[in-house]
Design a protein around this nucleic acid. Structure first.
Length: 304
DNA sequence: GAAGCGTGGAC
DNA sequence: TGTCCAAGCTT
């Protein structure tokens, strides 16, 4: 599939290479100070941050992140706890299955890697809850390796600057990965800096809603801006409904269980939602997911 | 490949 | 006010 146009030395590669210097300079001057970027943040801290940042904004992650690492400074500390404690400490970050997977990943790290977060991309990818993005992010941010780190920010930056469209495709594609790989600087340390810098540019300047093109270090070579910033022209992005969904019911049930370490009578859970059919379905789903443990005499708690 | 999975802030 | 969006993963 490798067209000549995708190989090094192509116009696309030249366009990408022209972005590196200004973006790296911009990052050095404008990067946010975030705890997982500090010198004392090891691979475990980076890994915890990446799990929490999957679909949850930075500002809401910060308090949970600090509490988590204070309580569980190493993978072995988390692995020694019941999974329910991870779910409780997850608080209201959302998608609590991530807490379960982070706990399972910590156990796998203890069992397979001597308690140290592995630096190998494939070993990372094999951990529960670690997909393409997170494996590349940990390998790049924590270990300085050269990987295409493709999240929604990077997809948007590349869609605008190189493809010339207002928004990336609705879901990630193999083409995104190829484009990001093409845009990656050749040498390892520069690639690692580019990964975090291009992501930060997407988070702070090249934003989804109202991009701050006036502050952008590469506006003079952005394909989208040079094309006159044409509006999004693609299939409608279906918004997520939430009110009345099983998700909402699950959230309410779990909120009750998080609030106490005691076994909760089913009657207390029944008060969460009026529709019995939906309520039972949601509760069954939580049990099936391992987020809730049923006990004798119609009682429930977070898993032990 | 689509669907399912939380929660809250911003405009 | 409702819609969109936020460092995705799993089945």
């Amino acid at each position: 599939m490798g067209s000549v146009l995708d190989q090094s030395g192509s116009p696309l590669t030249a366009a990408a290479t022209a972005l590196h210097e200004p973006v790296l300079r911009w990052y050095d001057a404008n990067a946010r100070v975030l705890p997982w970027r500090q010198p004392d943040a090891g691979p475990w801290a980076v890994m915890v941050s990446e799990f929490m940042l999957q679909q949850t904004p930075v500002n809401r992650v910060l308090p949970a992140y600090h509490a988590w690492l204070e309580r569980w400074p190493k993978p072995v500390d988390l692995a020694a706890e019941p999974p329910g404690e991870a779910v409780r400490a997850w608080d209201r970050l959302g998608y609590p299955r991530r807490a379960l997977r982070l706990h399972a990943a910590a156990q796998a790290i203890v069992e397979r890697h001597g308690g140290e977060v592995p630096d190998d991309h494939d070993a990372l990818l094999a951990l529960p809850g670690v997909g393409t993005y997170t494996a590349a992010a940990i390998a790049s941010f924590a270990f300085g390796q050269r990987h295409a780190v493709v999240d929604t920010n990077v997809r948007r930056v590349l869609a605008r600057t190189l493809t010339g469209v207002a928004q990336p495709t609705i879901s990630p594609t193999a083409a995104d990965q190829r484009l990001a790989a093409t845009a990656l600087p050749a040498d390892e340390p520069t690639a690692a800096r580019w990964a975090v810098a291009s992501m930060e540019l997407g988070a702070l300047v090249c934003t989804a809603r109202t991009p701050k093109c006036g502050d952008c270090p590469i506006r003079d070579r952005c394909a989208w801006v040079l094309a006159g910033s044409p509006p999004y022209d693609g299939p409608p992005r279906r918004g997520q409904t939430y009110e009345g969904t099983d998700r909402q019911v699950r959230g309410r049930l779990l909120a009750v269980l998080r609030a106490t370490s005691d076994a909760v009578p089913k009657k207390a859970l029944d008060a969460c939602w009026h529709d019995e059919v939906q309520r039972e379905r949601a509760l069954d789903g939580l049990v099936a997911d391992g987020l809730v443990e049923p006990l004798p005499r119609a009682r429930y708690r977070l898993p032990n």
